[in-house]
């Protein structure tokens, strides 16, 4: 049972990385899009691409927290005690980002829009970096078991955390760029498509290089993870590398659709590889999943909630998606009103 909960947790982490990551990455491109006039066009596409359900992707994060604190409370206590600083920064970044985006949508004065936009963009880089650093701290065994606090600084300012943070930012930027190529394609705007395609290729290469350099970092700094990645998790690593390389090829060849799928595959498998590599530890080399797990009654309840979510949320999403695709009904609902 605890294994099922751990799997649910990891699925949540992966989903957050893929969906949330793309949202953050879009913010990164917003940040580097340049001045107000030069950046206007890419910004318009970026705005447009961030899903219709505003910031809904944080649901994945909340989901991960809930599963973690309910099913693995001791590990949760250790993590929050040790990684207090990056978690706080991430929380602040989320408030800043979420609200500035909502307001940018609702505010019409250009100057206000720009201020909200800047806050949005900076927070979009800060949050994934912190998340990556947190993952690095956990994976390199810097969080002690037993609801204890580890070192408040070196737990997230260390080689593996830096690697995690940089990877998270670049991977998010890469995913977003690939999605944006696809979006721009739907808009049949070749210039903007080329703009994002070039950026997708660049970030793919940077992410690849960072991942490669990461091998040496992990070997020196996170031996358990390194051993796992080079044994148990090797097939996943290989799939990820192949998918990443293939998506790069497709991008260069300008085949956006396949590139998008492969990019998601590459990122998803690398995160799963992390999970498999540190199996069966929740906190590497100090707390196993089985030892961290809550009593079976709790885990059963959480699994029921997860199942209910799947059963209820999926059809609702399908309905929303179909509405999104559907044209407007003429003369139905409330048309422009006659004024008060």
């Amino acid at each position: 049972m605890s294994t099922a909960a751990a799997i649910a947790l990891f699925v949540g982490v992966t989903a957050y990385a893929i969906f949330g990551g793309a949202d953050f990455g879009a913010g990164f491109w917003d940040l580097v899009a340049g001045g107000a006039t030069r950046g206007d066009r890419p910004r318009a596409v970026i705005d447009h691409s961030i899903g219709p359900i505003w910031e809904a992707n944080h649901v994945w994060l909340v989901f991960c927290f809930v599963v973690l604190w309910t099913c693995f409370p001791e590990a949760y206590a250790s993590i929050t005690l040790t990684l207090f600083v990056p978690l706080t920064l991430a929380a602040l970044g989320i408030v800043l980002r979420g609200s500035s985006f909502a307001f940018r949508k609702a505010v019409f004065r250009t100057r206000d829009r720009r201020n909200f936009g800047a806050a949005f963009a900076v927070a979009s880089v800060l949050v994934p970096y912190c998340m990556g650093a947190i993952a690095g701290g956990i994976a390199s065994g810097r969080v002690p078991a037993g609801g204890q606090a580890g070192d408040p600084w070196s737990s997230w300012v260390n080689p593996t955390s830096v690697l995690g943070g940089v990877l998270a930012v670049t991977v998010a930027a890469y995913l977003a760029a690939v999605y944006l190529v696809w979006d721009a394609r739907r808009l049949s705007d070749p210039i903007i498509r080329e703009y994002f395609r070039r950026r997708a290729v660049i970030t793919a290469v940077i992410a690849g290089v960072a991942a490669f350099a990461g091998i040496f970092v992990l070997r020196a700094d996170a031996r358990y993870l390194f051993d796992g990645l080079t044994s148990r998790a090797l097939p996943l690593v290989a799939i990820s590398a192949t998918a990443g390389a293939a998506s790069l090829v497709l991008l260069v060849r300008n085949a956006a659709r396949g590139a998008r799928l492969l990019a998601v595959g590459a990122v998803g498998t690398v995160i799963l590889a992390w999970g498999v590599a540190q199996w069966d530890y929740m906190l590497p080399q100090s707390l196993t999943v089985a030892a961290a797990a809550a009593p079976s009654g709790t885990i059963a309840a959480v699994l029921v909630a997860v199942a209910a979510a799947t059963v209820l949320v999926v059809p609702a999403f399908v309905l929303l998606y179909r509405l999104d695709q559907k044209g407007l009904l003429p003369g139905e609902g409330v048309e422009r009103d006659t004024g008060q």
């Binding site: 809930v66 949760y76 809550a294 959480v302 979510a309």
Partner: peptide, 17 residues
Amino acid sequence: MGRWGDAFGIPFAFEGV
């Protein structure tokens, strides 16, 4: 949360849904 999360946390799983 470390000590009581396994009980206190449960309602939040449903809240999330």
